[in-house]
Design a protein around this nucleic acid. Structure first.
Lengths: 148, 148
DNA sequence: GTATTGTCGACCTTTCCGGTCAACATCGTA
DNA sequence: TACGATGTTGACCGGAAAGGTCGACAATAC
């Protein structure tokens, strides 16, 4: 049931782009360093995000990657479906094959869970993720100050 | 994100036992045939369910498997956690490691989804699954009658 | 004691995940 | 216009886990 690293790393990466929105292209190497993702592997994730129109990339010196549209027009559901493929927890939720459904047994329970999940992911935008992270950093910073 | 076949097959199998509750032991071969599960593989799933006290088995001629407690005292959450291990969609939801959480980015969204999911699975009992299946069969039967 | 069932663990095969690499395209700059 | 920095792409690889098989053994009814 685990999300694969594609979804995890890929979203981390694009959050990084969101946090540097408006500052020009961000290089692969920078993202990889800040988010602790192998550089070569990050390539594939960025390529996928580009294919699906979430980011655009510029080559050459001072090139890099940036969001292709505003962060609040990108939702987590679409990102994850781009990176991971379908998120369905059971095959029988995708085929309309009634044969499958007949033998499935627990499919109807997962259908509800799946619907709720998609709704929640669709309601979460990239800017939500970015601002949540900023919030989190601020908390940690003040916490650290008190400890010292 | 897919549930593995363990969770799928294993639940199918125990639903079968629930539907034959009170009729004495059900043989592995019968379950395998009705639910389309490789017989040798089914062994492992039944073994796991036995280890965790959901079913009990009797050897020898006319032996087989049956529920160890009433179907409405067994919930889907416990079944799946027995068969699949943890259902957490991200690692960072299980470790309490704050390091992880700091870099995770989308963990907080999945925490909510995970909680909802567990609640729903905990609220679904094995007898719910069995009666839902009976209902489904009845519908198909009447539908077929009309078609003919 | 024999046939019938379940029990257990070793083993095999296939698939896919995570990751690397090399060859290439594109662009800025001197 | 040549060079170097960057992104682009697809082939490739190793290892782990999933899915499944097999064989030897234990218990029980008859």
């Amino acid at each position: 049931m685990l999300l694969s690293t594609k979804g995890d790393y890929g979203v981390r990466a694009i959050i990084d782009l969101a946090k540097h929105e408006g500052e020009g292209p961000v290089q692969r190497a920078e993202i990889a360093r800040r988010r602790q993702i192998p550089e070569a592997y990050l390539d594939h994730l960025l390529a996928q995000l580009r294919r699906d129109g979430f980011i655009r990339s510029t080559r050459g010196p001072a090139g890099g990657h940036q969001l292709a549209k505003p962060a609040d027009e990108i939702c987590l559901l679409h990102l994850l479906e781009s990176l991971e493929g379908s998120l369905a927890p059971m095959q029988c939720l995708e085929n309309d094959d009634p044969e499958d459904e007949a033998i499935c047994g627990q499919g109807w329970v997962w259908q509800e869970i799946y619907d709720d999940m998609r709704a929640k992911l669709a309601a979460t935008s990239l800017s939500d993720l970015a601002s949540h992270e900023r919030e989190h950093e601020r908390e940690r910073a003040t916490a650290a100050r008190y400890v010292i």
